[in-house]
Design a protein around this nucleic acid. Structure first.
Lengths: 338, 338
DNA sequence: CTGAAAGCGCTAACAT
DNA sequence: ATGTTAGCGCTTTCAG
């Protein structure tokens, strides 16, 4: 058939035998404008017949909106997480017919940052920072210039109202409670030494133990763990067994990959999971349900953080600045390993 | 200072004491229009003073362009690779003042795909598929409807002119030649069994061996390798040693993580790298230069593939369809481990 | 060499 | 209940 000139609202109007304005009224369901059912159907039919899609650029120009928001991130975001957040954002955008413009956060000069230029060039209506390195001074610049933005960031100590972050403790508590209810008197933590006590995950673990009166094993976290390789984990567990004269009944792993490795260790050594040992890992992976046994996890609200951040951005764009951050809960997803 | 109304070309014109048209001429360096140096400077000064940035939406509308292209990908692209490609694309886009609109490839209905809608709504001028699942029938639809697109895809057997793919064999040849020149008579391949003979990487390895007359060890690829865990690699190597009565002098690893694990194995067993054993891994990682010894790698032309794809897309948009795919070479990056 | 004016496709007063 | 019209900010003939 080849390309015919793109169809405009004028074409629809002509075919429906009405004016362009009427087409706009019908298609946008403009409030306070009454359209007879007859013409409405005519317009709808014409639009469908011509396969009409409004020119967002023209629309945006008239509305003084860009109909797009920027997602700005670093070049080395971890992937699964990032894509889930993007999904959440995209779904909210789709509802409003907004598109997603992608920016990297390079900090040459605050004024020259890509998203700033884009905003001033009317290409975006606001920006969402997704785990991006972003200085307080730059955020101050954005505020000063009234550029709408939201920060999606999990690390604590970063407090502003237009922030979406996550809360881990309750989910860990739920997991440990579940382990306890299934008979585990002692729950060990498997994590990297260099993270140590400062980590949110370890803090949540300690918090859960004290709330539930579960024994803290003397050798936990397994501090000899330099990385999450299989050999490291194996030797750490061996040392644990030696010091505590036996395996823990349950282990909370800092990452999914540690969880997997622990499962492999157990399999190799004839330890039955979850009968002899329960395993729960913190993090998300498409593969968690696919291991044998399927790995129980504590998962971050990635999609929801994206969606919440995007909704918050729209609120800001529409003049309703949030007064307090959105905090979303991680959740305990028990599978076969616990 | 607060937000003042956005500055338009009219404001610049007024300040410079010229007409809007002149501003446009100067700022776009319009061909075939002579502007006196005096007015040119006046316009430039005014623009700078007002910090003027043209409204891309209005500009695009007038030019009948969207000033943006879509990157279409799946939700689970592997990350380092993806971000590098995006960088290449973004740099080319920046040259032309284009922005990047992000789409997921969901195949509900060919006509309803997001990028199709976006094209018809004038939000994008074309699409780049980055390792996305995309059916031939959908591509046919895009061609039929004259929607400009390019496919960045490495797997073979996918042949069309508007394609950017990569070629691995020469880089592997270079690596093996280097290993040989340093005295390695035998080079083993460390890869996952399930990939086996069908993989491009293994094929490239065999090709290099036969070209250079390097010995193919009987136990290569290390077919017992079920995954890339440390324990698996260790037992595979042990088996290799048993069957070949000794370690290979050099190993080509299918992935960077295998390379790292091999280095750790060597360190644990007192094998000196590269004196006793040379290691080269296929793939890219920020960490490759950071290991001890720094890992030699064979790296894909990720950035370049993005850039080439984007340039190709602009060619297509401007009516110059390519007649043949772009094929870019991987490169051998020797570091300390070889 | 520069300016006036038309118009890209759309929406929203303001008419009717 | 619908049509007329005036722009949104920009580029580009066409006149001076």
């Amino acid at each position: 058939m080849g390309r015919t000139r793109k169809v405009s609202s004028k074409d629809v109007a002509r075919l429906a035998g009405v004016s362009q304005a009427t087409v706009s009224y019908v298609l946008n369901n403009t409030q306070g404008v009454k359209i007879s059912d007859h013409t409405r159907q005519a317009v709808l039919a014409a639009a469908k017949k011509l396969n009409y899609i409004p020119n967002q650029c023209a629309r945006g120009m008239r509305l003084k909106k860009a109909m797009s928001v920027a997602v700005v991130s670093d070049k080395d975001v971890s992937n699964t997480r990032f894509m889930s957040v993007l999904e959440g954002i995209k779904d909210v955008l789709a509802d409003r017919n907004y598109s997603l413009t992608f920016c990297f956060s390079r900090w040459q000069d605050d004024h020259e940052a890509e998203h700033v230029q884009y905003f001033r060039a009317n290409r975006i209506d606001g920006a969402i920072f997704v785990w991006a390195a972003v200085s307080e001074s730059h955020l101050a610049y954005l505020i000063e210039n009234e550029i709408p933005f939201v920060v999606i960031h999990s690390s604590p100590g970063f407090d502003r109202p237009n922030l979406v972050r996550s809360h881990l403790d309750s989910a860990i508590l739920a997991a440990v409670a579940d382990l306890k209810s299934k008979g585990a008197d002692t729950v060990a933590f498997l994590g990297r030494a260099r993270r140590g006590v400062r980590s949110r995950k370890y803090a949540g673990y300690l918090n859960a133990l004290s709330h539930l009166g579960v024994t803290t094993p003397p050798e936990s976290p397994l501090s000899t763990l330099a990385d999450d390789s299989e050999a490291q984990i194996e030797s750490a567990l061996n040392e644990y067994v030696r010091k505590n004269s036996g395996l823990p009944q349950a282990v909370l792993c800092e990452t999914v990959s540690m969880g997997f490795r622990l499962l492999r260790y157990a399999a190799r050594n004839g330890i039955r999971v979850p009968q002899d040992l329960s395993v729960v890992a913190i993090g998300s992976s498409r593969f968690a349900p696919l291991s044998v046994p399927a790995l129980s996890t504590i998962e971050g609200p990635l999609y929801e953080m994206g969606a919440a951040g995007c909704k918050m951005l729209f609120d800001i764009i529409e003049g309703h600045a949030p007064t307090t951050p959105v905090v979303l809960e991680w959740s305990y997803v028990p599978r076969e390993s616990s």
